[in-house]
Write a protein that binds this DNA or RNA. Structure first.
Length: 274
DNA sequence: ATGGTTGAGCGTCAA
């Protein structure tokens, strides 16, 4: 009798790689562990003319889109499945600073709009009157929130990236001690959750209770990141409400923090049963 | 309050 084969879930991963050229040799380890169909990178730190296209296509990602600049920022989307460009979004805060890419994935069941964000870190002082970088971060957040809110027909979308905000109490090692630390201040966490509530589901917390500690980043500035365990969950995968039922699994690849010459962020992956 | 470390690319700046 004919029985439809159960389709393998679509896996979408995100990683702040903190220099693509330096850490290209680590990508096979990520692929072995997560088997992603789509991999979104942030902080590639490579201008487009120097992007290692041959290196990523050799890993099986035939469909690649990237936007980089010299020294800082930079995002890329590497995919095993075809996609079309999605170029409706504005130049956030009018800076041309390579913090966002979007594509329309040719996914089972219909196209999926995929957004890859690298939100400004925001500097050290959480006060926009003395720290312009914090103002930029808040402006970016507000602009993105408004832009998505205006897209009243948004459906079948996935939003990933280094959002540089740990929104929940247990997304940081000490809620009380981080309330005045950039990434966990109330204006940031409330802003991020307001954006999320306007149509998105947290694809990782769907599987992990809110009262359980969960991190995706550990600073380089600790002697022993694992024993001190002063982490924050800065990297996220959100899906629109209509895809919430397709969420099948999540993985935060904590082992990656111990790889040779590791990034300070680890990959985060979500499976969608489409 | 400060410092701790890493990357880009050669000054420091950004994180």
């Amino acid at each position: 009798m004919a029985r439809a084969a159960r389709r393998r879930p679509l896996r979408i991963a995100t990683w702040n790689i903190n220099s693509l050229r330096l850490r290209l040799p680590l990508l096979p380890k990520l692929i072995e562990a997560l088997q992603p169909d789509v991999l979104c990178l942030q902080e590639t730190k490579v201008p487009d003319e120097l992007f290692p296209l041959d290196g990523v296509t050799a890993l099986g990602f035939e469909h690649v889109r990237f936007r980089g600049m010299k020294g800082y920022n930079g995002v890329a989307i590497l995919s095993r499945i075809p996609f079309a460009h999605h170029d409706l979004a504005p130049d956030w805060c009018g800076r041309g600073d390579c913090r966002h890419l979007a594509v329309e994935l040719d996914a089972p069941g219909g196209p999926i709009e995929l957004h890859n964000f690298y939100i400004p870190a925001g500097g050290d002082v959480p006060d926009r009157t003395v720290n312009e970088k914090f103002g930029h971060k808040l402006d970016f957040l507000a602009e993105a929130t408004q832009w998505f809110a205006a897209r009243t027909t948004l459906s079948r979308a996935v939003l990933v990236g280094d959002l540089n905000i740990a929104p929940l109490e247990h997304d940081v090692w000490s809620h009380k001690q981080l309330l005045d630390v950039v990434s966990h201040t109330p204006v940031e966490t409330e802003g991020l959750l307001a954006w999320q509530r306007a149509g998105w589901v947290d694809g990782v917390r769907r599987f992990v209770p809110d009262d359980e500690k969960l991190y995706s980043w550990w600073s380089y500035r600790n002697r022993d990141w694992r024993s001190s365990d002063r982490g924050r969950r800065l990297d996220h995968v959100w899906v629109t409400d209509d895809l919430g039922g397709a969420l099948a699994n999540q993985t935060i690849l904590k082992d990656a923090r111990d790889w040779t010459q590791a990034s300070d962020h680890v990959p985060v992956c979500v499976e969608l049963a489409l």
